[in-house]
Amino acid sequence: MQVLFLALGASRKRAVLAESADLAAAGAQVVVLVHQKKSWNLKAFAPGVAVHSAAELEARHLARRVERAVLYRAPGSAARALDRGPLKSAARRSHRAYKRRVAGPVHRRVFMPLHRRLWPTAPARMVRSPFGAGGVPELLVVSDALSVQRAVSLVEAWAADGLPVPRICYGIDYDAPVTTAPATASNAG
């Protein structure tokens, strides 16, 4: 089974660690999506549990990699080439100023809005990339309040791409087979 935990708020760590460990021990492919890895003690995750930050996965999109090469890597290489002799400090100052005044604003104000418009489902595609080409998790575990919006947007994007929608739960202890009607209590009896 392929399982994606959304743990962007990092506010229910004990549950995420325990549940992901149980699933990994049972042989599931488990991916935990976090906002910042530094908010977590990565060693506390069980062997076999893959932890990715959302930004890291989304940055793997081809257009994002091209943008990074053009906007950051190429100027960085040029600055490093000049980073010697009398031009050393001037090159460093110029490169810092370039990143602050040009690259950053272009990335935030031009590229990212354009990227969102041209590839609206790219973030959702990249989030499922750890499951392999065409892979989609079978179970989506929403683990905190700050993951709720992302869960909805992922499911909507996958559905728009014609992909199967995973089962969703707020914890693996509350996962049950999906019936044709949503099994809220008023119609469960």
Binding site: V152, D173, Y174, A176, P177, P182, A183, T184
Partner: peptide
């Protein structure tokens, strides 16, 4: 939106 999909009796 999520509640309707995520809530199932166990």
């Amino acid at each position: 939106k999520l509640l309707r999909r995520a809530v199932r009796p166990v």
